[in-house]
Design a protein around this nucleic acid. Structure first.
Length: 856
RNA sequence: GCGGGCAUGGCGGAAUGGUAGACGCGCUAGAUUUAGGUUCUAGUUUUUUCGGAAGUGAAGGUUCAAGUCCUUUUGCCCGCACCA
């Protein structure tokens, strides 16, 4: 073995050796408990960045430690390979998306291998491969046959840059596309949807099962699903139509003074009286131009137009005008509301602006509200008034209070019914692009939408298409579009939309355990053996998108009898960003290229001489703060990169990339190298026996087993890699300082250090382990188990407190009883100094920890 | 507006209600070295009359004992938002 630690000379060697030994192949030993470790698979952009390094390292450490602890581990890798960048490359550079994608995959796979991640490459999948998307299409047909996939004409989010529609989840609150950054437009189109709303209640309820998930993610999903309980009430229009509203406050029905319906509401035309036609039309056009976001922006100033018609309030027969206004959304509730201005601020503002009536039905205690004079809506507590049957009832949502009573009354009188409403919308999955899985449907004039037969799957993407960037290339390919109807044989047309790529990623974790099955998406027996994923790791950006869709898929797959699990991911870890050191001009806000900063310790702007701000921000080209994984690996090796990234911050927190800290981590690897190579310990050394140890040996052995205990705890359930590594450092320090380097305990310590280190820094650990003369890799050894006996101490340090203030410590024999400890403490010099001559009112003895004297 | 999270040395971060600052970075001094780097040793919250005293964003409270629990509050970050 070399005397100098040179990672470049050892890492590749071990990566190849592990492959040759088949160490990372998923064990089929059914005698072992299973552990499914999963990282969110990447989009194959072609370049590995530090964020990738972080996720895969985290999962790798977990997988490696579980293997050493006797689990059969599945740690797979694949590619979320459909998507627009490939198509854009085709448009810009004339490369076919498939060629571009597969080249990127090859490049990224090589980069991943440099990291020494223990993926089972036999399970590799790429969602753009016909072997895979065949089953994505099959999954779609499962939904279709289950009545969970349907077409609907709807106002949808249209991304003008990517030239496709997007699901609600893929547009942020500012109306910006998650991918292109474009402001989405609204378009009326016929599109495919999945009925995720059928599962809204379950998706919400089962969040309670997910106690291994961050609370934050569960809350985000609960908010997105957005359940609210209330009632549906049917008003009748003058024209005789039913106009159904949803309200969470049915108790205030008697206070409704007008109604508002969304500008897109189907009844608008019928309700509009002759004199109002133009005003209504103009308002509708204005509203149509605005996105939902614009509607809610603009200072929230209320706008609207009266249709000229009225409706009859079913509870009291009151005649109320029907307005249209864009503060009512067509896609929430029923697209129509009853307005109670006295008790709803939005309705109040609207009523004030247009001079509509305000009727108080809730009177707060000790106050008399008057609809004509109040300055704002009263949404607080009170007692019902002017509400016939409800008069005198306490207003509120509690048991026996007005809301419950109102629902009972509505149902008893057949005027409405209690109901729940969800914010969640059905999932729009059509995309007007080429590089995605075709939707396996054929449209026939006579038979409608007909499923492509299972034995005809996959509907393959045609290769020879033209990429102009305008419209779907598939739609223009007549030879592909025109096919006979599978049912009646008449000329029919293929669906030319492809699926949202989130379809592909919503079930890939079900495919991995049985990745090479060409007769089914997966064998249910294999699927049930491995599902659910025991530990999932990925970015918080999928808190709703991918994680919600995957939960939905899992429930549908369960209901189709393919799997038995309710939830796909038992535990979820959302790792923080990797941030780069960024130089920023404080006045212009411009980012300065690090190479142009002469003295990084005192950075000044190279052109203006201003002192620059040094901040840590997400790595990106525009900020000139990126660090390439390949550069770090070639300079320090993968082990140092892995150790640094794990040590620098807890996994869920953002991590500041700092070259000085990387150096520090490299020093630690060097210390271990020297410690082990200079120790003289080899596979032939006797292993320590716990008996008849000297004091020094006992101290060292306690340090060894404390490290085992702490690291094992840090790696159970909650993963605390940073403190685990600090324990490795402590053990390494203890071994360096050991006073008994000839002892078998020292040999035990050296070996234990390598075993504990193996999951974190696998290359150096195996190099040193095999260098000691062992026959088999460090990675197939059992993970050390703590010997509780080694942790027992002869002497305890007891803290002496007086009135809760620490005054010193004493050493006592561990065998002393509680009373004896108290007596020793009382007699101690430290305590006497503070308690002599004073009355000791109380003594608290915490065994093994402290004695606290309470003096008067 | 609603919901959630966070706040500890120069920095990243540790602390089952029980010696706050583990571990690391940086820094200071010394040793080794022709020098730099490496490596090793010691030190590194503040203050001090060298006995101590104070200290975990702020203010209260519970407790023998609070970074940790409770109440109020400030700042920052994140998610949702005219949701009927």
């Amino acid at each position: 073995m070399e005397s100098r630690y040179t990672p470049a000379n050892i890492e590749r060697k071990w990566q190849e050796a592990w492959v040759n030994q088949g160490l990372h192949r998923t064990s089929t030993d059914q005698g072992k408990p299973k552990f499914y470790a999963l990282s969110m698979f990447p989009y194959p952009s072609g370049n590995l960045h530090m964020g990738h390094v972080r996720v895969y390292t985290i999962v790798d450490v977990i997988a490696r430690i579980k293997r050493m602890q006797g689990y059969r581990v599945l740690n797979p890798m694949g590619w979320d390979a459909f998507g627009l960048p490939a198509e854009n490359a085709a448009i810009e550079r004339g490369v076919h998306p498939a060629k571009w994608t597969y080249a990127n995959i090859d490049q990224m796979r090589d980069q991943l291998k440099d990291l020494g991640i223990s993926f089972d490459w036999d399970k590799e999948i790429a969602t753009c491969s016909p072997d895979y998307y065949k089953w994505t299409q099959w999954m779609f047909l499962q939904f279709f046959q289950g009545g969970l996939a349907y077409q609907k004409e709807a106002t949808v989010n249209w991304d003008p840059i990517d030239q496709t529609v997007l699901a609600n989840e893929q547009v942020d609150s500012a109306g910006i596309s998650w991918r292109s950054g474009a402001k989405v437009e609204r378009k009326l189109l016929r599109q495919w949807f999945l009925k995720i709303t059928d599962y809204a209640e379950q998706l919400l309820q089962d969040l309670d099962q997910l106690d291994g998930w961050p609370e934050k993610v569960r809350l985000m999903q609960a908010n997105w699903i957005g359940k609210s309980t209330g009632a549906q009430v049917t008003f009748t229009t003058e024209q005789g139509d039913d106009l159904v509203v949803f309200t969470t406050r049915p108790d205030t029905l008697w206070g409704a003074t007008f109604m508002v319906i969304a500008p897109e509401h189907p009844l608008v035309e019928k309700l509009t009286v002759a004199g109002q036609t133009e005003a209504i039309k103009a308002y509708q056009e204005m509203a149509a131009k605005k996105s939902d976001v614009d509607r809610s922006a603009e200072g929230k100033e209320k706008t609207g137009v009266w249709t000229g018609s009225c409706a009859i309030n079913p509870v009291n027969g009151a005649k109320v005008p029907i307005w249209i206004a864009d503060y009512v959304m067509m896609d929430y509730g029923t697209g129509a509301i009853m307005a109670v201005p006295a008790h709803d601020q939005r309705d109040f503002e609207f009523a004030k602006k247009f001079g509509l009536g305000i009727k108080v039905v809730v009177q707060p205690e000790g106050e008399v509200l008057d609809g004509g004079t109040i300055a704002e809506a009263w949404a607080g507590a009170g007692v019902m008034v002017n509400s016939e049957a409800l008069d005198g009832v306490v207003a509120g949502k509690g048991k026996g209070q007005s809301v419950e009573r109102a629902v009972e009354w509505l149902e008893a009188n057949n005027k409405g019914k209690g109901t729940t409403n969800f914010r969640l919308r059905d999932w729009l999955i059509s995309r007007q692009r080429y590089w995605g899985s075709p939707i396996p449907i054929i449209h026939c004039d006579d038979c409608g939408a007909v499923a492509v037969a299972d034995d005809q799957l996959p509907v393959e993407l045609p290769v020879d298409v033209e990429f102009s960037g305008k419209g779907s290339p598939l739609a223009k390919l007549e030879s592909w579009v025109n096919v006979p109807c599978p049912t009646c044989g008449k000329p029919a047309k293929r669906e030319t939309d492809t699926m949202d790529t989130f379809m592909c990623s919503s079930w890939y974790f079900m495919r991995y355990p049985d990745a090479q099955n060409d007769g089914a998406a997966f064998d249910p027996a294999v699927g049930n053996d491995w599902m659910a994923v025991d530990q999932y790791v990925g970015g918080i950006e999928h808190a709703i998108l991918h994680l919600l869709y995957s939960r939905f898929f899992t429930k549908v797959v369960r209901d189709r009898g393919l799997l038995t699990c309710d939830e796909p991911f038992k535990r979820l870890l959302t790792q923080g960003m990797v941030q780069g050191r960024t130089f920023k001009n404080p006045t212009t806000g411009q980012y300065v290229i690090p190479q142009n900063v002469a003295d990084p310790a005192n950075p000044v702007d190279p052109t203006t001489g201003e002192v620059l701000d040094v901040v840590y921000e997400k790595m990106s080209k525009s900020k000139h703060n990126g660090v390439a994984p390949s550069d770090v690996i070639s300079k320090y090796g993968a082990d140092t990169a892995r150790m640094f990234i794990l040590f620098k911050a807890p996994p869920e927190k953002d991590l500041e990339w700092d070259d000085a800290d990387v150096e520090g981590q490299f020093r630690f690897m060097n210390r271990i190298w020297r410690l082990v190579t200079e120790s003289g310990v080899n596979s032939g050394n006797a292993i320590a026996t716990p008996e008849n140890l000297s004091k020094d040996e006992k101290v060292l052995r306690r340090a060894i087993h404390t490290a085992i205990k702490e690291i094992t705890e840090d790696m159970t359930d909650e993963y605390q890699f940073n403190t685990a590594i600090s324990e490795l450092m402590k053990l390494s320090n203890a071994l360096s300082d050991a006073a008994c380097k000839d002892s078998p305990v020292y040999a035990e310590g050296i070996r234990t250090l390598l075993l504990l280190l193996a999951p974190f820094a696998p290359h150096i650990a195996d190099e040193l382990w095999m260098g000691m003369g062992f026959e088999t890799s460090v990675h197939v050894q059992a993970f050390p188990v703590v010997d509780a006996g080694a942790l027992v101490v002869d002497e305890l340090t007891i803290v002496i407190q007086v009135l809760g203030k620490t005054r010193g410590t004493i050493e006592v024999a561990a065998t002393l009883s509680k009373d004896e400890v108290e007596a020793a403490a009382r007699a101690s010099e430290v305590a006497q100094k503070y308690i002599a001559g004073k009355e000791v009112k109380k003594v608290i003895v915490v065994p093994g920890k402290l004695v606290n004297f309470v003096v008067g």
